[in-house]
Simulated scan of single mutants.
Amino acid sequence: MSTTYTLTITMDDTTVNDLLTSGYYLYAYKAVQAGNPNGGAPLVWFQTQTFSETTVITWTESYEAYTSTTTTLTDGTVINASASYAINLGQELQVNSTAGTGTVVNTSNSSVISVLNQTSTQFTCGLSQSVQGSSGSQLCALPLYGNNLDTITPVEQVMVVFMTEDVNTGSVVYQLSGPSLLVDMTGMTEATISYDINTNWSGNTEGWCTQYAAGTEIAPILVQPS
């Protein structure tokens, strides 16, 4: 049975009302480790304007490996999956057609999810993960060159941010216009953080939260070398 994780965000009335009046969205991004992170991009994993004094984001260890024929990872590009397959750690998607379709097989490496391109066609690949009960939302994008292998390990690190830009889930984002917080939930399934529109994010003092200023480049933070 897959583990369920819960991140709770608390705010006071003033902050909630100011965010809603100003047209802010709450975004979440999910980190991964990649065997070859060069050229990799974080994608908008979750977006909502439904938030209040207490807002809860939940997700499970339910993954899909996807391929996409969109190969230009420019800021704002929406990566639509051409093909997607349920997958677990220790499994590999073997892509065997120019449509990006393939077969999932077991491997001897139980610590990673692999995508092997058995064609000479370039794709984009990555992982999707269930969030807020959805079947899966893309969280990263990696170049998948012809006859090459990408390895990806999901990690329990979530970045949250409030921004006024309306950015679709699955969109490439390299830089955030608002202050963000990276929450490392490795070894725990529940965490609580808080947000104030003027003083921004606050969490623990034990090292599982890291604040980043507006304008921070997030690709090196969210697409990590394995």
Score class of each variant (00 low, 15 high):
residue 2 S to Y: 09
residue 3 T to K: 06
residue 4 T to A: 00
residue 4 T to H: 01
residue 8 T to H: 11
residue 8 T to M: 12
residue 8 T to N: 04
residue 9 I to E: 06
residue 9 I to M: 14
residue 10 T to D: 00
residue 10 T to W: 05
residue 11 M to W: 08
residue 16 V to C: 08
residue 16 V to D: 00
residue 16 V to F: 00
residue 17 N to T: 13
residue 17 N to P: 05
residue 17 N to S: 13
residue 18 D to Y: 04
residue 18 D to T: 13
residue 20 L to W: 10
residue 26 L to S: 06
residue 28 A to E: 05
residue 28 A to I: 13
residue 29 Y to G: 10
residue 31 A to I: 04
residue 32 V to P: 10
residue 36 N to V: 12
residue 37 P to D: 02
residue 38 N to P: 04
residue 43 L to K: 07
residue 44 V to H: 13
residue 46 F to P: 02
residue 46 F to S: 10
residue 52 S to R: 11
residue 55 T to Q: 07
residue 56 V to W: 05
residue 62 S to I: 00
residue 62 S to E: 00
residue 63 Y to H: 01
residue 65 A to C: 10
residue 68 S to D: 04
residue 71 T to V: 12
residue 74 T to C: 03
residue 77 T to W: 03
residue 79 I to D: 03
residue 80 N to F: 13
residue 81 A to D: 07
residue 81 A to V: 12
residue 85 Y to Q: 11
residue 87 I to W: 05
residue 87 I to K: 08
residue 89 L to P: 15
residue 90 G to Q: 13
residue 91 Q to S: 09
residue 92 E to R: 15
residue 94 Q to C: 08
residue 95 V to K: 06
residue 96 N to K: 07
residue 98 T to E: 03
residue 101 T to V: 09
residue 105 V to R: 15
residue 106 N to M: 08
residue 106 N to Q: 14
residue 106 N to R: 14
residue 107 T to F: 09
residue 112 V to L: 09
residue 112 V to F: 08
residue 114 S to T: 07
residue 116 L to K: 13
residue 117 N to K: 05
residue 121 T to S: 00
residue 121 T to L: 00
residue 124 T to R: 11
residue 125 C to W: 07
residue 125 C to P: 13
residue 126 G to W: 03
residue 127 L to F: 04
residue 127 L to Y: 04
residue 128 S to Y: 07
residue 129 Q to S: 02
residue 130 S to V: 13
residue 133 G to V: 12
residue 133 G to N: 07
residue 133 G to T: 11
residue 135 S to A: 12
residue 135 S to D: 09
residue 136 G to Q: 12
residue 137 S to E: 11
residue 138 Q to L: 10
residue 138 Q to C: 08
residue 139 L to W: 01
residue 140 C to G: 02
residue 141 A to D: 05
residue 142 L to V: 09
residue 144 L to Y: 05
residue 146 G to I: 08
residue 147 N to T: 14
residue 150 D to W: 04
residue 151 T to R: 13
residue 156 E to V: 08
residue 156 E to L: 01
residue 157 Q to Y: 04
residue 160 V to F: 15
residue 160 V to L: 15
residue 162 F to R: 00
residue 163 M to V: 03
residue 163 M to P: 00
residue 163 M to T: 06
residue 164 T to N: 14
residue 165 E to N: 14
residue 166 D to V: 10
residue 168 N to M: 10
residue 169 T to D: 06
residue 169 T to M: 10
residue 172 V to P: 12
residue 172 V to Q: 08
residue 172 V to C: 11
residue 173 V to Q: 07
residue 174 Y to H: 14
residue 174 Y to E: 11
residue 175 Q to N: 13
residue 176 L to E: 05
residue 180 S to M: 14
residue 182 L to C: 06
residue 186 T to N: 15
residue 186 T to H: 15
residue 189 T to R: 00
residue 189 T to S: 12
residue 190 E to I: 00
residue 194 S to H: 08
residue 195 Y to R: 06
residue 195 Y to P: 01
residue 196 D to K: 14
residue 196 D to P: 06
residue 202 S to V: 06
residue 202 S to P: 00
residue 203 G to C: 02
residue 204 N to A: 02
residue 204 N to Q: 02
residue 207 G to I: 06
residue 207 G to Y: 01
residue 209 C to Y: 00
residue 210 T to E: 01
residue 211 Q to H: 07
residue 212 Y to C: 01
residue 216 T to Y: 07
residue 217 E to I: 06
residue 217 E to R: 08
residue 226 S to I: 15
residue 226 S to P: 09
